[in-house]
């Protein structure tokens, strides 16, 4: 049962930020996580601030930097031909989230605000060095994605703040991929998900692993490996060793920690072979 809750649809961003400063107020966009959590008694908001009407959150730009507003849903991200060309990894990630019907509601920003360790949109944003643009009582601020997600279901959002958009300042950085290990082909949460980007010109290799720690894990030291190891299989092995040193998976109903570790190795290797050859 969803407990009675006050609902407010602000006419402007200013009204939204004001409303969000009241006690136990939550922003509502797609609602695909929030409403489920309310029904399950995990979240108990007193006020829902419906941000779907705010123009500032409807922005979507692909020329130059990529800008994805807070109200942009995942099917939009999958369907946009320009985005698919410029930054295919976002669409690839989005395609694995839930079902078609849910993706009509679920937003990219909502996926990272929910801050599940298994969030399927997060690894791609980590390797794309995305920034989260937040508006609040103190005005706007830009937060790097890896500082935005701070723990299991925790973000660095402060009271009264709302995410306006996500920006990817430099999308044309190399070859990308997203791979997700789930139990079966029908929709399931990730056992492990990985995203990566490789650019031989700049010697950049970034790999991020989801569902294996309290937050997605962006591997450190991959550039050095990439620059020094030419054989892609050897590189894949080394990066996967690095991955195993960096993660701390847990047991749950979907997988044992041990299996998650082994699958991380398999998927990181597959990822590296995909983007580095």
């Amino acid at each position: 049962m969803i407990k009675p809750v006050a609902y407010f649809k602000p006419g402007s961003l200013k009204e939204a930020v004001e409303a969000l400063q009241t006690e136990n107020a939550w922003p509502l966009a797609g609602g695909t996580d929030l409403l489920v959590n309310m029904r399950n008694g995990v979240e108990h908001p007193d006020l829902l601030v419906d941000i779907k009407g705010l123009e500032e959150l409807n922005v979507f730009e692909v020329d130059g930097k990529i800008i994805i507003g807070g109200n942009i849903n995942l099917n939009f991200i999958i369907d946009d031909a320009r985005l698919r060309k410029v930054c295919p990894v976002l669409g690839q990630s989005a395609l694995t989230v839930a079902t078609y019907q849910l993706r009509n509601r679920a937003t990219l920003v909502g996926n990272i605000c929910n801050a599940s360790p298994a969030a399927d949109m997060a690894p791609a944003l980590y390797v794309m060095e995305a920034e989260v643009v937040v508006s609040g009582p103190q005005g706007e601020r830009h937060v790097p994605i890896n500082e935005f997600i701070t723990g299991v279901k925790k973000t660095s959002l402060k009271k009264g703040e709302v995410v306006l958009r996500v920006e990817i300042p430099n999308p044309k950085v190399g070859k990308t991929a997203f791979l997700k290990k789930q139990r079966y082909r029908g929709h399931d949460l990730a056992t492990v998900n990985v995203a990566g980007i490789a650019n031989p010109d700049t010697g950049t290799l970034r790999v991020c692993i989801g569902a294996c720690a309290v937050t997605p894990v962006l591997l450190k030291g991959t550039d050095e490996l990439y620059k020094s190891i030419k054989d892609v299989d050897e590189l894949a092995d080394k990066v996967s060793e690095l991955a195993l040193q960096s993660i701390s998976p847990i047991d749950d109903v979907r997988s044992s920690a041990e299996y998650r570790r082994d699958m991380t190795a398999v998927y990181v290797k597959r990822l590296v072979r995909t983007i580095c050859s």
């Binding site: 139990r183 079966y184 082909r185 029908g186 929709h187 399931d188 949460l189 109903v253 979907r254």
Partner: peptide, 23 residues
């Protein structure tokens, strides 16, 4: 269907997977 000492852990169809048209 997983239980741990009599406590069911797979209550809903997000945890307990049944075949879909994709499977």
């Amino acid at each position: 269907y997983i239980e741990e000492k009599g406590i069911p852990l797979t209550w809903n169809l997000a945890q307990y997977l049944i075949p879909t048209s994709k499977d």
